[in-house]
């Protein structure tokens, strides 16, 4: 991957997609990098398909367009697969990370990525979220899986920033449960 890493997130309103993108950007900031995190705002409402974008670079980022050929695609909501072309424009050598119980091999076939130089990772983040949080808010496990899959930023800084960010809104047990979900996804993400 080049110096500028471009990431596209697919999810639905209410899943914490924008927050996850911002936590990733803040982790990059702590490591002295430049970043952008911005959502693709439509009429926002709970459950509507949304896209969000993150850019990370070692040098200042000047471009202010949306991301059309991402290095990394993260699909936070599995019900979007088949509904939205989540693999659209992904770069050769890129990474796609999906929240799904399916195997990476199955998803590679399903997304038409067979034989293409794209790394496919899967993690059942919804199941992990249900187990730890009792609710299907898979953004924190997806962050954990992303760190393992891409090594973009350190796990420690993402954990600390997640604690800070969620700590401002949630009770301590809920923050702890999010961190447990993040760590479990970090361990369990599969590549194929």
């Amino acid at each position: 991957m080049g110096e500028l890493i471009e990431i596209r997130w697919h999810g639905r309103g209410g899943q914490g997609v924008v927050t996850a993108g911002e936590i990733l950007a803040e982790a990059a900031m702590e490591e002295g990098k430049y970043f952008q995190a911005f959502p693709d705002y439509g009429p926002e409402r709970m459950g509507a398909p949304i896209r969000a974008y993150t850019r990370i670079s070692d040098s200042p980022i000047e471009i202010h367009s949306q991301i059309t050929s991402p290095d990394i695609v993260i699909v936070v909501d599995p019900t979007l697969i088949g509904l939205v072309n989540v693999a659209e424009g992904i770069k050769e050598g890129g990474v796609i990370l999906l929240n799904t119980p399916a195997s990476p091999q199955e998803m590679r076939q399903k997304l038409g990525l067979a034989g293409k130089g794209v790394k496919v990772f899967t993690i059942d983040a919804s199941e992990i979220a249900m187990k730890h949080l009792g609710r299907n808010i898979p953004n924190t496990p997806m962050l954990g899986a992303l760190i393992k899959a891409t090594n973009l930023v350190s796990l420690e800084s993402v954990i600390r920033l997640t604690e800070e960010r969620l700590g401002a809104k949630l009770r301590e047990e809920a923050v702890k449960a999010n961190i447990a979900a993040l760590k479990e996804a970090y361990e369990k993400v599969q590549e194929g």
Binding site: Y34, F35, A37, F38, Y41, H64
Partner: peptide, 12 residues
Amino acid sequence: QDGFITGHGVER
């Protein structure tokens, strides 16, 4: 400044 593009865009 530009609405959403920078207004809602988090940067350094």
